[in-house]
């Protein structure tokens, strides 16, 4: 799975901001704010990846158990899917 094309993520003065561009900006003119974990997951999702890969990558950075992290990643991805931002 990966993030659909047409969105950029940028750190703007300490805030992780996702903004649509191109055709995407016509049907969605708002923006999405992410926390740091969300931004890290988003970055990994810019290339085709899996839940397993994402979790393993983040375990190197976050000092939490694999179960907790897997749940957090799952929840974030389901939010992205709900917002129609993920393609398989």
């Amino acid at each position: 799975m990966k993030i659909k094309d047409g969105y950029v993520l940028r750190n703007v003065a300490g805030n992780y901001i996702v903004v649509p561009f191109g055709e995407k900006s016509l049907d969605f003119s708002g923006l999405i704010t992410l926390n740091e974990l969300g931004a890290n997951i988003w970055n990994l999702l810019e290339k085709d990846t899996t839940l397993e890969e994402i979790t393993q990558n983040l375990l190197k950075e976050y000092d939490v158990s694999e179960d907790v992290l897997t749940n957090d990643v799952k929840e974030f991805i389901s939010q992205l899917k709900g917002a129609n931002l993920i393609e398989n």
Partner: peptide, 11 residues
């Protein structure tokens, strides 16, 4: 802007 690079410049 619609263009990706210009959006990044703006941000």
């Amino acid at each position: 802007p619609k263009d990706k690079n210009l959006i990044l410049k703006l941000l």
